[in-house]
């Protein structure tokens, strides 16, 4: 029997021991992640950026899907916590020789690994590993299929909190391919829990999930209505591979309707911030003048990404450790 990921990721006394999803986590816990990340921002502004918190621990980056930014920010986060990190390019290694996923993981566990950072194309992969395969290794979900990308969502929450002072009461619009976006799903859960006044999704009908209102987001089909009075505009990357299956007419058509330009951004509040999880497709979902403009906080997001990952890695490791100590006692 499988338990819901929001339960699997917590210890009996409600602390984080894996980080699989933002869904079902309390406001207090999400706030604790943001507060801890805030402290890690200040440690990174020093000459010596490392703290000794995870000294002697071994973190394995297990990326079954390609990623540059997420993988490198997890790597930096682990290094700045003084952990040892191993990067495994799974697609090119053991699994290509026929070893099963479980055998790979059990081997890594036998090498005394303490934490796996997992990205996988299948929804639920990180949850499956945390519950069924290696429960005593802390699992951090770095993106699973269309399901969740919780560290990206939390770095976005931190960005909003730092640049708009608070998440409570804010109107946030997420624009683009919501249907295929694990980032959007994780953002919607976190925004609702942290008290955003309204979460909107904007895109063509073919790229908005049918059940979006059940998640607590309001669908809009044009930018003018959707961006009106927004405090935060989050653009998603248009995944070009989706073009092939007739969900979209063309890149230029998409840019005309949903690409963020200076003119369209003017529908939002004058102090609205513009975010993007990267990598950005200039001229497809966002115009350079906006991406590089004064309202853009895109590069801040990258810096905050390291701090947020340091926070969840140290909190999950701490949860695993205290649970192990209690079990021994």
């Amino acid at each position: 029997m499988t338990t819901h990921p929001s339960q699997v990721q917590l210890t009996e006394d409600g602390r984080l021991k894996h980080f699989l999803t933002t869904e079902g986590l309390s406001k207090a816990l999400l706030t604790e992640i943001l507060d801890t990340a805030d402290s890690f921002i200040s440690t990174q502004e020093r000459g010596v950026k490392k703290v000794p918190l995870l000294r002697g621990k071994t973190v394995v980056n297990l990326f079954f899907e390609n990623s540059t930014r997420t993988r490198s920010t997890f790597e930096l986060a682990a290094k700045r916590l003084s952990a040892d990190i191993l990067n495994l390019d799974i697609a090119k290694s053991a699994t290509a020789k026929g070893e099963t996923l479980m055998d790979t993981l059990w081997n890594l566990e036998a090498m005394y690994s303490d934490m796996f950072v997992v990205r996988h194309a299948d929804s639920g992969a990180a949850h499956f590993i945390a519950e069924q395969v290696t429960p005593n290794v802390a699992i951090i979900n770095a993106g699973d299929g269309r399901h969740a990308h919780p560290t990206q969502a939390m770095l976005d929450m931190l960005t909003i909190r730092r640049h708009q002072h608070s998440i409570e009461g804010k109107v946030v619009a997420i624009v683009g391919d919501i249907l295929h976006s694990r980032v959007a799903r994780s953002q919607i859960h976190a925004l609702r829990t942290l008290g955003a006044a309204e979460v909107r999704v904007i895109g063509p009908g073919t790229l908005l999930p049918r059940d979006i209102e059940a998640l607590g987001a309001k669908p809009f089909y044009n930018m003018k209505d959707g961006l009106r009075d927004c405090d935060v505009v989050i653009m998603l990357r248009l995944q070009k591979e989706r073009m092939n299956n007739a969900l979209l007419p063309s890149e230029s058509e998409f840019f005309k309707l949903y690409g963020l330009t200076t003119e369209k951004l003017a529908f939002a509040k004058p102090n609205a911030i513009v975010m993007h999880p990267g990598p950005i497709n200039r001229g497809v979902e966002i115009e350079s003048a906006v991406a590089d403009g004064p309202q853009s906080v895109i590069l801040h997001q990258v810096s905050y990404g390291i701090a947020v990952r340091m926070a969840v890695m140290s909190m999950a490791m701490s949860g695993q450790q205290t649970q192990a100590t209690e079990e021994q006692a």
Partner: peptide, 12 residues
């Protein structure tokens, strides 16, 4: 840290 974990209110 390995025995008691992270203090829940780190202020920096």
């Amino acid at each position: 840290f390995t025995q008691h974990g992270l203090h829940p209110q780190v202020k920096g």
